[in-house]
């Protein structure tokens, strides 16, 4: 990669978020050993965050500080970052994580500095970037046609970089002025749908849109009843339809689980769903579509129509086969 390489760290509650370390290994994957770490916060928190970055990575850190950055908002980030990068060298890669925040500010940042923006990057080609498209069925290799490139990188595609550095990097705190924002942050609300039953279950039988109707929930309920210590999971699509309530949702905006067995029934395997279950001990998928992305994380795959296969499976088990 030509030019400078900047990593915008994500943080919460005064600590750097784990995705940030994965961005460092993404930089190495791009052949960049010395990216500049960047972090944005208010004066009270910036030094601790910048120090954490400098010590953990050994890389130089630029901390942008201003009272408007006390709480996250896309507007605060963009109005701080756009002037900063307008003055930076033309050729630059600016990288952050593909999380709810990264994807919130990255496109607007790119527009402000006439950059190309590529989201959900999961691999690197010959000067190109690779991302999943079409429900994870294919990947697209994309070329940037601007000297400045903003990327959101899928955290799970890269391991956290754990190289213990010799010396901490240099920290530079840059006052970003005090910008008055038109957005007003009003804090956060805890998830309403946390489900302890799911996190404790040894076996999760999980339902996807492939169930076809709310009535067919009885199929997964029946299957789940064969296992002691089991619970029902679901994709967001199932909860959106009202087939199960949101406390069953598994994925990036739902529960994260890692049971001994995860039985995925009629689930396509979208990245947002995989984010909540990919560490399960054993994954078994039942799906009519042999190319469904879920089969690429499954230990065992069964290409069958669940509406006939689940009753058959239950029947064979109860008969003692």
């Amino acid at each position: 990669m030509n030019g400078r390489f900047f990593i915008i760290a994500l943080h919460e509650g005064g600590r750097v978020r784990e995705e940030t370390w994965r961005l460092v290994s993404f930089a190495r994957r791009c052949g960049v050993a010395d990216p500049v770490m960047m972090v944005l916060s208010d004066e009270g928190a910036i030094e601790q965050l910048a120090d954490e970055l400098a010590h953990r990575t050994g890389l130089d850190v630029a901390g942008l500080a201003g009272s408007h950055l006390r709480e996250y908002s896309a507007e605060a980030y963009i109005r701080t970052l756009v002037p900063f990068f307008r003055d930076a060298p033309e050729e630059a890669h600016i990288v952050t994580a593909h999380t709810s925040r990264g994807i919130d500010f990255a496109p607007q940042l790119s527009a402000g500095i006439d950059a190309c923006c590529i989201t959900a990057v999961e691999d690197v080609g010959q000067g190109t970037f690779i991302r999943s498209v079409h429900h994870g069925r294919f990947r697209a290799e994309v070329r940037a046609d601007r000297p400045r490139v903003v990327l959101t990188v899928l955290p799970e595609a890269f391991a956290p970089d754990d190289v213990a550095p010799g010396n901490p990097g240099k920290v530079r705190i840059v006052p970003a002025g005090d910008i008055s924002l038109s957005t007003c942050s009003r804090g956060a609300r805890a998830p309403v749908h946390a489900n302890m039953g799911l996190t404790r279950a040894e076996v999760i039988v999980s339902a996807g849109r492939g169930l076809g109707s709310g009535e067919n929930i009885r199929l997964v309920t029946m299957l789940s009843s064969l296992f002691p210590k089991s619970a029902l999971g679901a994709t967001r699509a199932v909860c959106d339809q009202g087939w199960l309530d949101y406390s069953h949702q598994i994925g990036s905006t739902g529960n994260t689980v890692s049971p001994r067995l995860y039985l995925a029934c009629g689930i396509s395997g979208a990245i947002q769903h995989l984010a909540g279950m990919r560490d399960s001990g054993m994954i078994v998928a039942v799906n009519t579509d042999p190319c469904a992305a879920i089969f690429r994380v499954a230990h065992y795959g069964i290409v069958e129509d669940l509406t006939t296969f689940i009753p058959l499976l239950v029947d064979r088990y109860l008969r003692g086969e």
Binding site: A115, V142, D145, I283
Partner: peptide, 17 residues
């Protein structure tokens, strides 16, 4: 700002049975 070079098959993933 960008061009599609080509569409690739999905990454290999876990070689499940």
């Amino acid at each position: 700002t960008q061009g599609l070079v080509r569409i690739l098959p999905p990454a290999q993933g876990r070689q499940g049975e």
